[in-house]
Design a protein around this nucleic acid. Structure first.
Length: 490
RNA sequence: GCCCCCAUCGUCUAGUCGGUUAGGACACCAGCCUUUCAAGCUGGCGGCACGGGUUCGAGUCCCGUUGGGGGUACCA
């Protein structure tokens, strides 16, 4: 109902720095970006701002902020403004609290946390509904003044308005929170620092945010924020609460059930295009039967009205399926570049940039589900000598005519001027015909000779990717191996 | 306890005006293709949580139950 792609649109992604970017956060960032870019697509002015909610973890927020910025950049998510650090704006937040105090929208609370908690426990224990404002009397003004004067510590509480709070949520529709669910909450701690609720609202006002797109865990906080927006006499933004991402156990996605951060998926060899596509589809679909959509296509098709309201289970298998798709369609150069760290892991760094590496990757890329797997499959292409296992290749050792046949194949391959998929296949098949054997008689042992494996890419792809000289050497070694084993076996 | 949200194959989803053989994708199974393994193609398995209403007719609307999730902080 509430699609607002007409006026200027300003959205924000506001993660708290935890040392990594959670995939749930990444998905929120994607929808923020899509909302922004979708509006721009429709001709509206739009901006995406990045704001780091570090009011609680100011200690190492520089490194943590960098981590988030890097992860977003890796995913290809762009922002137009920021990153702004919430911690650097606390003076302004405090001023807002003073204003609220002066206008009677907030009041001093001298009660200790322990005292409040004890009262709450007692009331709940009786089976009654607890709210701070119904549980405690408010101190008269003169008493407040005297205690403040005396230097007593106090927190500042926001006075929630009396009635129900209602609003329209893009994904939830009409929302209504009754007064008994609304409590006077703290906006300034007794050490004078602003709390999250105050900071977000003040920042959203200052940054002229029009759409607040965030996780469903904030749905219950929204009435508090609306109370603040109204007291601060600011227009309230349109809210959009995204359902949570669940693990295989149907619980909120946590490390117990596997990887949760974009950094982890990146390290596993997931390509950013795949993660972006996958995350965008976790809670949204274009309405037709497309599944593989690039960022540009998503921007073109995005419509917030199609956001789903049900929590989704994160399915790593489907992500990997998408990843396999992207690995086979991306530019080879990009794959080569992203593959570097994994190539290093398998000790093939020296071959980076080589023709053979490019050929091998191009052959193997369609057969792997992630970059790490891809890198692993590259090994046979770069081994000087393969050590063949007599037990495993017993079948070939038993074939008396095989060594001579392979020897002949080897020589014909060595003599080839145009070493190509077509020519190597033609030569092999011609030889098979001459020898009156099926092509498979030569194909299977040749594969083993080159890769020490009975499964792999189409043989002639392998033969060519490996190279004329290298392939010839493996063939020679395999023939020698066959001779030796035949001698042993008698 | 109280408040809020949610509910279509195992999983992601289409379904948005009540009338569909409830469609697609991942996974799984089978067949085809093939020099192998994948991929691909074809086919199969499999679902509207339950109970009441409203209606000629309910996956779709209403109520309840059950189940799941979130919130209930001087955390964000």
């Amino acid at each position: 109902m509430a699609t607002t792609t007409r006026g200027p649109v300003r959205v924000r992604f506001a993660p708290s720095p935890t040392g990594f970017l959670h995939v749930g956060g990444a998905r929120t960032a994607i929808y923020n970006e899509l909302m922004c870019l979708g509006a721009r697509r429709d001709g509206a002015e739009a901006a995406h701002v990045l704001r780091i909610e570090d009011t609680d973890t100011a200690r190492s927020s520089d490194a943590m902020t960098q981590q988030i910025v890097d992860a977003l950049a890796w995913l290809g998510i762009e922002h137009d403004e920021g990153p702004f650090l919430q911690s650097e704006r606390s003076t302004h937040h405090r001023e807002a609290a003073e204003q609220l105090l002066a206008q009677g929208h907030a009041y001093h609370c001298f009660r200790s946390q322990e005292e409040v908690e004890a009262m709450r426990a007692e009331i709940v224990g009786r089976g009654e509904n607890y709210t701070y404002r119904t549980a405690f009397e408010r101190a008269p003004d003169d008493e407040v003044a005297r205690r403040v004067e005396a230097g007593e510590p106090y927190a500042v509480r926001f006075r929630m308005p009396d009635g129900a709070i209602e609003f329209d949520d893009i994904v939830r529709g009409a929302m209504s929170f009754p007064p008994e669910a609304l409590d006077d909450f703290i906006i300034l701690r007794s050490d004078g620092s602003p709390t999250y609720h105050l900071s977000v609202v003040v920042d959203d006002i200052d940054m002229a945010i029009t759409h607040v797109i965030r996780g469903e865990d904030h749905l219950s906080n929204t009435p508090k924020h609306i109370g603040l927006f109204r007291a601060l006499e600011a227009d309230e933004p349109t809210f959009c609460h995204l359902p949570l991402i669940l693990g295989a156990d149907k619980k909120r996605l946590s490390k117990r059930t596997g990887a949760t951060s974009v950094e982890e998926f990146r390290d596993q060899g997931i390509v950013p295009q795949a993660l972006y596509n996958y995350l965008a589809f976790l809670g949204w679909s274009p309405g037709d039967e497309r599944e593989l959509m690039s960022r540009d296509e998503l921007i073109e098709a995005f419509d917030a009205d199609r956001l789903r309201r049900t929590a989704a289970v994160f399915d790593i298998e489907k992500l990997r399926w998408m990843n396999a798709n992207y690995m086979s369609i991306l530019d080879l150069d990009e794959i080569l570049r992203r593959l570097e760290p994994y190539v290093a892991e398998v000790g093939l760094t020296e071959h980076l940039g080589s023709e053979r590496m490019a050929r091998a990757v191009d052959v193997q890329r369609r057969r792997a589900k992630d970059l790490r797997e891809l890198a692993g499959s590259l090994r046979p292409y770069f081994q000087d000598t393969l050590s063949y296992d007599a037990e495993r290749w017993r079948k070939f050792i038993g074939q008396a005519e095989l060594p001579a046949a392979l020897e002949e194949l080897m020589q014909r391959y060595a003599a080839l001027d145009d070493y190509s998929i077509e020519s190597t296949e033609r030569v092999l098949r011609e030889l098979a015909t001459e020898l009156e054997v099926k092509a498979g008689f030569l194909i299977h042992p040749t594969r083993v000779a080159l890769s020490n494996d009975k499964a792999g890419p189409p043989l002639f792809d392998l033969v060519v990717a490996m190279g004329q000289e290298e392939g010839g050497r493996h063939l020679r070694n395999f023939v020698a191996f066959l001779h030796a084993e035949r001698a042993v076996g008698g």
